[in-house]
Design a binder for these strands. Structure first.
Lengths: 217, 217
DNA sequence: TTAGTACCGTACCGTTCGGTACCATGTCAA
DNA sequence: TTGACATGGTACCGAACGGTACGGTACTAA
């Protein structure tokens, strides 16, 4: 793992700085990257440009700070049920996870930040992209891995490769939706609560079918 | 469907215009959206800015033309085998499709155009995003649906909802990879031919498991 | 009070970029 | 040859933006 060598990685912000980043996120959600100008942020947050540069270095520093700030806000509560559960309880647990995942990914702030990082990060060594993968993906992954293991301990699931099982789960739950939302499409299956619930159930159905204890892969 | 009411949708380009768009795509792949300046395109393509504005209207027109031009180039050859095949032949057919899909999505030009559309298209009514979904997704979808139907006719697959089956197939094959590549990550499972083949086989395995003729959903 | 600190608001500078205008060159038709 | 047309090259303009500098203000500590 990368031990605190990177720039742009500051995780402690004062309240004032947090408020400024909040305003910047608002601008980003509303108007895209084009709306993130230093003057615009200063105006929206009632702060001076000089403070922006003192706190975050330069414009890229502001963008990176926005990502780390937002990520630090979305600390997923890793609610883990007891290690042994009934199959029904575990399935419900999985559905909650899937629903939470879709909720996060379809959030306006998440979409805006992903659009920012993607639009910015054409070349390898994309700082914002790595930041987003590291801070966003890792947390949900951790939570899911714990969940999957508890499912295996409960005898509901069977798999050799826990990471591969997670990838499959993620694929079945999220699938095509993320990219389509990033491209601006309003995905029907995620609009209302009913359609989303149906999709989640189907996805979990398929996952259970692939990893039920009588299957092996 | 939208009948030729939109602007930005021009599908016929002269050779000279095609060469200019080619140069613009080169710039995009190399340097991201930031590199797409009118002066830069004119310089790279040895044409005048005035010609650019005469042909494409404005900068957004150039971007849209780049997408339609590239899409018109990648016409997928819808190679369809005979309607009735052996299960092994059909599975091989599916693997070829999956491999082609991953090849297209991981191509530098495709990634660059997707990054462009995503970075650009924050707000609903994202012209470039719709263009990309329409021109890109539709073709691969058509090809896959034909393929799936032939699989059903051959008795290898069973499903009620062909579209849902396609979504599952797409999810299992592409999964997380597209977004991660868009974010700048070099996905290990797609680097060398061997790892990719293994991934495709696993994905098709799971797809067959879900939609084999003794399952129902 | 005095000095220091942190911050806001604004003005300013250099650069870049989208878009337009103008001129030169080549080509084709009459 | 002459004139119309398409195109390349260059210069130019106005606006926007990143970044810096400066003055003014509130607060704190000695």
């Amino acid at each position: 793992m990368n031990t605190h060598a990177d720039p742009y990685i500051e995780t402690d912000f004062t309240d004032r700085q947090g408020a400024v980043l909040e305003a910047a996120l608002g601008l980003l959600v509303e108007g895209g990257e084009k709306a993130i100008t230093t003057a615009g942020i200063a105006r929206a947050a009632n702060c001076s440009k000089e403070s922006l540069y003192k706190w975050f270095g330069d414009r890229d520093g502001i963008l990176a700070a926005m990502i780390t700030y937002q990520a630090s806000k979305v600390r997923v509560s890793a609610r883990l049920g007891g290690p042994s559960q009934s199959p029904e309880a575990f399935r419900a647990e999985l559905e909650v996870f899937a629903n939470d995942l879709l909720t996060v990914l379809s959030g306006e702030t998440s979409l805006a930040l992903n659009r920012l990082a993607i639009g910015q990060g054409s070349r390898e060594g994309s700082v914002l992209g790595n930041l987003l993968i590291e801070r966003g993906r890792k947390t949900v992954r951790e939570r899911a891995l714990v969940l999957l293991q508890s499912g295996q301990l409960a005898g509901v699931l069977r798999f050799n490769d826990r990471a591969a099982a997670f990838d499959t789960l993620y694929s079945l739950v999220v699938g095509d939706f993320h990219v389509r939302m990033l491209l601006g499409e309003s995905v029907p299956a995620l609009r209302d609560e009913l359609a989303r619930k149906e999709h989640v159930e189907q996805a979990i159905d398929r996952f259970h079918l692939l990893y039920s204890k009588d299957q092996m892969n």
